[in-house]
């Protein structure tokens, strides 16, 4: 099933007197249960594309359909709703609320979804359990290690059962061992039937994905299926 359809989108920023073409003409489709890595050097437009895919921003021109919704025409409130219901974010810097404990951080998207306190607590606890943090629920971010923080962020992304998980350099602030653990967690999540979009500039991180899209100067340079590659933790299907 088709989740994301992008047709000829462009994004132009006005920086002073100058126009910056962050995205020139990008078209792509992402289906359900795909594991996509978006790669590219800095300035290639991958952050802009990620913001666009994450419904944090709207394109200057072109069409963006998320399931049946025309995102390119949405106002702030509609974008907020779609982010809340359909997208789970994982950031490089974790972006947890520093003064709230892990449980409350995971609860947050459910608050904005209007779910009652009791159900929220249950679902948040379950999500934390699924990322292996059942015993860290009442720790604040500064009482957790980097890997644990990222796990809280992943639990927060999963708790609403979103259509896609959007991870922006999820291992960028972690040492390689912890980073690898996090990537294994993503593999697990992928195997449970989730759709993952990973933005990274590290080849070995991108190798976890089944499809790699490379951007350069606001255009798609290549879009290759690499599912035949070895994916750590994923059972290689023999057929």
């Amino acid at each position: 099933m088709n989740i994301i359809t992008i047709e000829h989108i462009a994004k132009v920023y006005q920086v002073g007197m100058e126009e910056v073409h962050a995205l020139r003409d990008v078209s792509l489709r992402i289906d359900k249960n795909e594991y996509v890595a978006i790669m590219g050097p800095s300035g290639s437009g991958k952050s802009t594309l990620m913001n666009m895919l994450g419904c944090l921003d709207t394109p200057t021109s072109g069409l963006y359909n998320f399931k049946d919704h025309n995102v390119s025409q949405m106002n702030d409130n509609e974008l907020a709703t779609i982010r809340n219901k359909e997208i789970g974010f994982v950031f490089q810097t974790f972006n947890l609320l520093p003064r709230s404990d892990a449980l409350h951080n995971v609860e947050l998207p459910l608050i904005y979804a209007g779910i009652t306190s009791h159900e929220r607590k249950e679902r948040a606890a379950a999500a934390l359990e699924s990322v292996g943090l059942a015993d860290r629920m009442h720790h604040k971010p500064n009482e957790l290690s980097g890997g644990q923080r990222q796990r809280v962020a992943i639990a927060r992304a999963l708790v609403t059962n979103p259509s896609i998980i959007l991870a922006d350099e999820p291992t960028g602030n972690l040492d390689s061992k912890t980073g690898e653990d996090i990537m294994l967690l993503f593999n697990e999540i992928f195997e449970q039937g989730n759709t993952i979009i990973l933005v990274t500039h590290e080849e070995y991180i991108a190798e976890h994905a089944a499809r790699i899209i490379r951007l350069r100067d606001g255009l798609i340079e290549s879009d290759e299926n690499v599912s035949d590659r070895f994916i750590p933790g994923k059972k290689v299907s023999v057929d």
């Binding site: 702030d76 409130n77 709703t81 982010r83 972006n95 609320l97 979804a113």
Partner: peptide, 16 residues
């Protein structure tokens, strides 16, 4: 500011 960004990213509306 960052907290506001986080809240908005995970679905807080402007009026919220």
């Amino acid at each position: 500011t960052r907290e506001i960004g986080i809240r908005k990213a995970i679905g807080a509306k402007n009026r919220t």
